[in-house]
């Protein structure tokens, strides 16, 4: 039983004998062709090139001027700090999310997993024993991410700067964006630091 070979439609149309331009676009001495038809033919060549150039230009422009402010606006109004308490600053950290200071009105909600966070608030004394855990938590957070060093201990070691077991400043471990002074800083100071970080994010990429 022999079936006839299926007819394969050739994707390439058969070439005409004469080149396209010579037949379609009329030359000076050729036959008269309407002007609209000439412009249409020229546009068919121009449009793919223009589309390519325009899209690359738009991509750059949109990232810089359009998308970046949108992402910055969204990011700075939904900062999720890591719920990680180290020392007495963590008490003030907790108070900032209570009813009186209510950091959630700025969109700041502490999360318990570093995968869901974009803000690491180092609130307390960092010892060398816990240093590599802090770095692990920081590396587990998705980009973009920011770090606030809350209190004197995280900023520069505080009263334990010369101790044998204390990291003299958490910026020796991770890049810090905002330093908050105080021992411990009040919740207002933490909120001020968060608002300054939001200002930092607003200017990001400009």
């Amino acid at each position: 039983m022999s079936s006839p070979a299926p007819a394969v439609a050739s994707p390439v149309p058969p070439k005409s004998a004469a080149p396209l331009l010579e037949t379609e676009i009329p030359l000076v001495n050729g036959p008269a062709v309407p002007y609209v038809e000439i412009e249409t033919l020229r546009a068919r060549e121009f449009i793919p090139q223009a589309k390519e150039a325009l899209s690359s230009l738009l991509r750059e422009q949109m990232e810089g001027k359009l998308l970046r402010p949108v992402f910055n606006w969204a990011g700075r109004n939904s900062l999720f700090p890591l719920h990680w308490g180290l020392a007495c600053c963590a008490i003030e950290f907790a108070a900032a999310f209570g009813a009186r200071w209510d950091a959630e009105r700025f969109g700041v909600v502490p999360r318990s997993s570093p995968r869901q966070c974009d803000l690491l608030i180092v609130n307390g004394t960092v010892t060398w024993k816990v240093a590599h855990k802090l770095i692990t938590l920081y590396e587990q957070m998705p980009e973009p991410k920011w770090v606030i060093a809350m209190g004197n201990c995280a900023t520069g070691g505080g009263p334990f700067r010369t101790a044998y077991s204390v990291v003299p400043g958490v910026d020796k471990l991770v890049p810090v964006d905002i330093y908050i002074a105080g021992c411990p800083p009040r919740p207002e100071a933490l909120l001020d630091g968060i608002l300054q970080l939001e200002e930092l994010i607003r200017r990001r990429g400009e």
Binding site: W128, H132, Y164
Partner: peptide, 24 residues
Amino acid sequence: AFHPLLRSFKLHEPEELEVKSRSV
């Protein structure tokens, strides 16, 4: 590398101690 509560243990400058004891 130290036994820090020995009386012979001198307080280090933070940077010096950091280099010697950093484990990360």
